[in-house]
């Protein structure tokens, strides 16, 4: 059952650019990966970071800068962006990981604002304009990611699309594996009852720090990839709006579910695209959607479905 679902989703991913505007699908994938990385923290470790845009946007700037100015190939650009975000995650982590709840959220937000300020003021980030005209480059020096195919009269950037799709799959697989690993089990235990996990002899702070670094790195992967897709790293990527959006995506889709953040990211990005004609009303519509969702199905889209499946089997009388 599970295998079939994954196979179907994979095939859908392969076919997607022929059915939907590829750049839009790539945008969906980048944000979906971002939300999945975020979910590893909030859904499986119980840490609410309010500064994840720093990793997403920070990596976008690093990758954009190096690909544009140092001539890095796109795959190296994404790898370096990921590592940079991981390093930032480590620094953020050692400063925040001892804090709990709202304090943790506020300090991550404050640190993210520092990154925002650097992106705004530093001489190499392009200030208000951001880094523009980031080249898509040659994958492994061989495949031109900027190449556009014409299928049935439609221009399709298939090279870039499959590049992004593969990155998404790898990132998603890493998160999926981390959740279903010995490490993931302990993370869940920490989320459920931290004092108990400590009393069993687990060094909770180190475990949380590792989760934070993995989450930050993959958020960076998403941001780095995004900077190649849009050929742009901008202040929006590092702003607190983006940090808030990823919280929204994860909550809408379902905290602590594997596919929830993907569904949530698709919903938010699709709403933004569909409603873009209404200008700033988008925010209002998404806000109302969010309120309705939280009031009527707290577990998020995927969370509610799973709960239905769980409670259905007969013979389990309470």
């Amino acid at each position: 059952m599970n295998r079939k679902l994954w196979a179907a989703l994979f095939l859908a991913g392969l076919a997607a650019p022929f059915l939907i505007y590829p750049v839009f699908v790539m945008q969906l994938l980048c944000f979906a990966l971002f939300a999945c990385a975020f979910n590893l923290l909030i859904g499986y470790t119980g840490l609410l970071s309010f500064g994840h845009a720093a990793f997403f946007g920070g990596a976008a700037y690093v990758t954009g800068y190096l690909v544009k100015n140092a001539g890095l190939t796109p795959e190296l650009g994404v790898i370096v962006g990921t590592l940079a975000a991981g390093l930032m995650g480590y620094i953020f982590g050692i400063l925040t990981i001892r804090r709990q709840g709202i304090y943790f959220a506020m300090i991550t937000l404050a640190l993210a604002q520092v990154i925002y300020f650097i992106a705004l003021k530093a001489p190499f980030t392009g200030g208000e304009d951001g880094l523009q005209d980031v080249p898509r480059g040659m994958f492994l020096g061989l495949v031109d990611l900027g190449h556009t195919y014409h299928v049935a009269g439609k221009p399709l950037e298939l090279n870039l699309y499959y590049f992004v799709f593969i990155i998404f799959c790898i990132g998603f697989w890493i998160i999926h594996r981390a959740i279903h690993s010995p490490f993931g089990q302990i993370l869940k235990a920490i989320r459920e009852n931290e004092p108990r996990a400590i009393s069993l002899g687990y060094k909770v702070e180190r475990l949380k720090l590792l989760a934070f670094v993995i989450s930050a790195s993959l958020a960076g992967t998403a941001g780095a990839t995004k900077s190649l897709v849009f050929q742009l790293a901008s202040l929006t990527d590092v702003s607190w709006h983006t940090s808030g959006e990823v919280v929204l995506m994860t909550l809408l889709g379902g905290l602590g579910t594997v596919l929830g953040p993907v569904v949530g990211a698709f919903t938010v990005v699709a709403l933004q695209a569909e409603l873009s004609a209404f200008g700033s009303w988008v925010t209002v519509v998404i806000g109302v959607t969010f309120v309705v969702c939280v009031l009527s199905f707290r577990r998020g889209f995927v969370g509610e479905v799973l709960e239905k499946i769980r409670t259905r089997p007969p013979g389990q009388n309470d």
């Binding site: 981390a178 010995p182 590792l210």
Partner: peptide, 14 residues
Amino acid sequence: QRRLGTCYHFWKPV
């Protein structure tokens, strides 16, 4: 699990 010493192994299957 603690005895196994794999609590940081995020790449291993469950």
